[in-house]
Design a protein around this nucleic acid. Structure first.
Lengths: 386, 386
DNA sequence: GGGGTTACTTTCAGAGCGGAAGGCATGTCG
DNA sequence: CGACATGCCTTCCGCTCTGAAAGTAACCCC
């Protein structure tokens, strides 16, 4: 009846469309929402009523744009109507965040993983979630992401970095352990979902995400829907050839994306030249200051990244690419080389590429997992479209 | 009232869905169609009635599959309910076909282009269409495709091979000249549409088309919808780098797709080696018989093609690629090299690639244009989805 | 030729929609 | 300061489309 966010969960049909429109495109007056969805004003009143009653939508302060007539009463999502847990599992740590319905992070924590077995993962996620959620608002659903293959948002079918080579029903295990529905997702798909709904690519129906860090990651959204497949988010571009004269990667590919861009590759190349061990950030600092060893390595990496981006844009016809990941500083330090690489492989007659460079940390990955949970909750079925 | 294919054109909503389902997925009993579309049997009876009355759908002979119960009466499209014109314009010729609603070619013709100005194109298309359509069934709509940029299926914004560098309202000109609605499309998009609805990729919701011939062409369907953009079908892959040690293309790119795969590049490479001018087919014949000059050229081309295919699959996550174009014999002669190129750039852990090699001639391109017309007619709005 | 089985059709009530008319909260002007 | 204009939203009503259920049709088998 009042503020209680009643479990009016089975959002369906037009009601869901209204909620999604407001969630994804921000507050808007009823008339505007009706226009966008192709509905009449009367229908919108009817549809919005129960959503407002349930606490999911709220009327926000009247806008003073029109100077005459009855003032508009924009509708907005009440982002605190629901809260979600997101978790990113790496080979040795778990990062957990609590977010609102708009994927705003309101709390985060992380802890070392005591082991790589499923029980260790489940226990660590449960402990961190318990600490963060204690005393706070109730949690509606959770999402967990990791670098591996995931089937049906439930079963991890391969996660080499955890040495999981057989099916692990992580979704079921976590749903049981946490007490609310938990979706599992590939980490790159989760991050791509977050950029799609609430991040740099908000409002775009076609874009790619490229991440650099320990490896090179890739996610794709076409026609407002993420492109999923058994191979999605699982190293499709890792050995993409970029420089025929480049160094070798551990698998023996010369000048592949991993050999040119992975943290370990860059550190190794600079360390060998300097005859001492250097960190990734040192490599970038040295390159920025014009070091004779680091600078060409970073420039070559930047150029390779640019060529990778150009190839992605050429093959997928996207005009926007979101560039992120822990190693993203490379794109800033070597921005000129990145642009040169793009120019080398992208015909100047084509539409210009919108390159969006975003900082990243593990919180972003955990937030991505929360967005998987949000999508699963809002769309009810498999999280797919936007 | 009876066989007259009444202009019940404004197919909308569920009616359109029924017609599309039958058109694209062949004859099926009402119950099966209802199940696929998520409709009740009652609704299907109601929806099918007017479609049958208008002559668009027909009941085909009962199938004797079930041995008990009332026999099923499958519904099928009446492919001759409508006829379409498709035309492909090259730099010196126009190819025209007449097709049924299922894009079956029932007549074709071609003629030289007397000039490259818009009037020459319009006149030639009109003359050929008049000859083919005379005395035959009435034409519902036409489609014209060419290698260039096309906006809104109406205006050619760039067609370098015709030396058109300013907007040409070809759609309007042809609609006026022919007397029925005419859609204009990029040739690669048109061919991709044909493969999507009525060709090798029928039933697939994600695939790429790669053509080899005078150049290298590319089309993409994701989520059952063709990927369109101002750059689509317009040489996005033409200068994609494939072999760092390859020959130069006319634009100065070493080992790019054009340099490795275009007819002129292959003929030039073999001709230079043999000290005499050879045709494309001669090159392939020589290579097949183990010629010392032609064989390595063709093998390198095949390998480059394989690498191009692998890259397309990696970036777009498609599992099916349709390979066609006038130069397709290359893929047959050098099939082993193509497969080797795919293996080189495609991780064996990924889903296997379904490579579909299809013969091609100019009739296929004209048929593609007819499919653009069919899609425009059936979908009413911009031809987009399937 | 009657019973069994399955495919399709008819009937009917309910859900959801758009359009029209009215209510409401403001700004504006006499 | 009150009537009016304006534009947003709500209420109401009839229409259309739908699924569920009951009814009919067409075949096979015995």
């Amino acid at each position: 009846m009042d503020a209680t966010p009643a479990p009016s969960n089975p959002l369906a049909g037009a009601s869901r469309a209204v909620a999604l429109e407001v969630l994804l495109r921000g507050p808007a007056p009823r008339s505007e929402i009706a226009r966008r969805l192709g509905l009449s004003a009367g229908s919108l009143t009817r549809l919005a009523k129960p959503l407002i009653d349930s606490g999911l939508l709220v009327e926000v302060g009247t806008s003073r744009e029109a100077r005459t007539g009855r003032p508009i009463r924009p509708l907005d999502i009440n982002p605190t109507a629901h809260h979600f847990v997101g978790a990113k599992v790496t080979s040795d740590e778990v990062h957990v965040v609590i977010t609102t319905l708009r994927a705003e992070v309101i709390a985060s924590a992380h802890a070392a993983l005591p082991g790589r077995d499923p029980d260790s993962v489940v226990d660590t996620v449960r402990t961190l979630t318990g600490e963060l959620a204690a005393g706070g608002p109730p949690i509606t659903a959770a999402g967990v992401c990791l670098g591996g293959r995931v089937a049906h948002h439930a079963t991890v079918t391969a996660a080499p970095f955890l040495e999981w080579f057989e099916d692990v029903p992580l979704g079921r295990l976590l749903t049981d352990a946490l007490g609310f529905p938990t979706a599992v997702d590939n980490d790159l798909l989760a991050l791509t979902r977050a950029e799609h709904w609430f991040g740099a690519a908000r409002g775009h129906d076609r874009f790619a995400v490229v991440t650099i860090g320990a490896g090179v990651g890739y996610g794709l959204v076409i026609h407002d829907t993420i492109v999923d497949s058994p191979d999605a988010g699982f190293g499709l571009l890792g050995h993409y050839p970029l420089d025929p004269l480049g160094p070798l990667c551990p698998s023996g590919h010369r000048g592949c994306a991993t050999a040119m861009l992975a943290h370990s590759s860059i550190c190794a190349a600079v360390s060998v030249g300097l005859r001492r061990s250097v960190t990734y950030d040192e490599c970038l600092d040295l390159a920025a200051s014009g070091d004779r060893v680091a600078e060409p390595v970073i420039t070559a990496a930047g150029r390779a990244l640019g060529r990778l981006i150009a190839a992605a844009a050429n093959f997928t016809l996207v005009q926007k690419i979101v560039l992120t990941g822990e190693g993203i500083r490379l794109a800033e330090v070597a921005r000129a080389a990145v642009d040169e690489g793009v120019r080398a492989d992208r015909d100047p007659g084509f539409a210009p590429l919108d390159l969006d460079i975003r900082p990243s940390d593990f919180t972003q990955w955990a937030r991505g997992a929360a967005v998987t949970a949000i999508q699963t909750y809002v769309l009810d079925d498999a999280p797919v479209a936007g």
